[in-house]
Computed example of a mutant assay.
Amino acid sequence: MKISVITTCFNRENTIEDTIQSLLAQDYPDIEYIIIDGNSSDRTMSIVNKYKDRISKIVSEPDHGMYEGLNKGIRAATGDIIGLLHSDDLYFSDDSLSHVAQCFTETNADLLYGNGLFVSIDDTTKVTRDWISGKYSKSKISLGWLPLHTTVYIRRTLFEKLGYYNDSYKIAADSDLLVRYLYKADIKVIYLNNYLVRMRMGGLSTTTKRFRQKWKEDIQIYRNHRISPYKALIIKIISKIPQFIRAALTSHTTDRKQ
């Protein structure tokens, strides 16, 4: 079973090498690694090219954002399973993808998701949010629940059947895709109760301006799928509080049980 992993990046010279090294350290033997760069103007590509002999496909050209880049990567992928690793994120452990592959093999899942940790930008051992996704049900989607996007792995054939990221959304296209797959479609979904990623705290939706944009996009997405947007979003915000509490009450390090 081949797993295709896609990293999109733009001007990520400070973190891209950590991300690449985290992928290359994985002990799973059948990985296709694809990097889609949005024509970076800093040292990102010079760092990427240091590893070009160990990266399956590299594309660097102007695009309209991360979701267009992800769609390029998905269309270029040849793996049975597709996942993503953001350009400032790390795998939780060197056997994260082995756990993913084993779970797909044992369950014949269409889509699999797990748990993740948000960590400090400056100290990736310091946990700031502890995201335990929990079990899946369609009713939870209508109440604002979604798994952590970077822990989601999907069979490649599903993208052809159910569609790619809608890149008209600039911040919330991942939410739209997950709602389409988990709420609208009938697929086999499996929760892998393992930590899979460590994400540096930050990202597209963290500034006030971008948070407002994401809020507007989320409202539109829920309305499009006939879900009460304000009820879902309020519950979604409240559900994040335990993630911060768990992080504050547990140890400083990212050492968690698989």
Results as ranks from 00 to 15, higher is better:
residue 172 A to E: 06
residue 179 V to C: 02
residue 179 V to W: 00
residue 181 Y to W: 11
residue 183 Y to Q: 02
residue 183 Y to P: 06
residue 184 K to H: 10
residue 185 A to L: 10
residue 185 A to W: 15
residue 188 K to A: 04
residue 189 V to I: 14
residue 189 V to D: 12
residue 189 V to P: 02
residue 190 I to R: 02
residue 190 I to D: 09
residue 190 I to A: 00
residue 190 I to E: 12
residue 191 Y to N: 00
residue 192 L to A: 06
residue 193 N to M: 03
residue 193 N to I: 05
residue 194 N to I: 01
residue 194 N to C: 08
residue 194 N to D: 00
residue 195 Y to K: 04
residue 195 Y to T: 09
residue 196 L to S: 14
residue 197 V to E: 00
residue 198 R to Y: 10
residue 199 M to H: 13
residue 199 M to N: 04
residue 200 R to G: 01
residue 201 M to E: 15
residue 202 G to C: 08
residue 203 G to Y: 07
residue 204 L to G: 12
residue 205 S to Y: 06
residue 205 S to K: 11
residue 205 S to H: 04
residue 206 T to K: 15
residue 207 T to G: 07
residue 208 T to R: 14
residue 210 R to Y: 15
residue 211 F to V: 12
residue 211 F to G: 05
residue 212 R to I: 11
residue 213 Q to C: 12
residue 214 K to G: 08
residue 215 W to F: 14
residue 215 W to I: 10
residue 218 D to V: 01
residue 218 D to E: 08
residue 221 I to Q: 10
residue 221 I to K: 10
residue 223 R to I: 13
residue 223 R to G: 03
residue 223 R to V: 14
residue 224 N to Y: 14
residue 228 S to G: 01
residue 229 P to L: 03
residue 230 Y to K: 13
residue 232 A to Q: 10
residue 233 L to V: 11
residue 233 L to F: 13
residue 233 L to C: 05
residue 234 I to E: 05
residue 234 I to W: 05
residue 235 I to D: 06
residue 236 K to G: 02
residue 236 K to I: 13
residue 237 I to Y: 08
residue 238 I to M: 15
residue 238 I to Q: 14
residue 238 I to L: 15
residue 238 I to E: 15
residue 239 S to F: 13
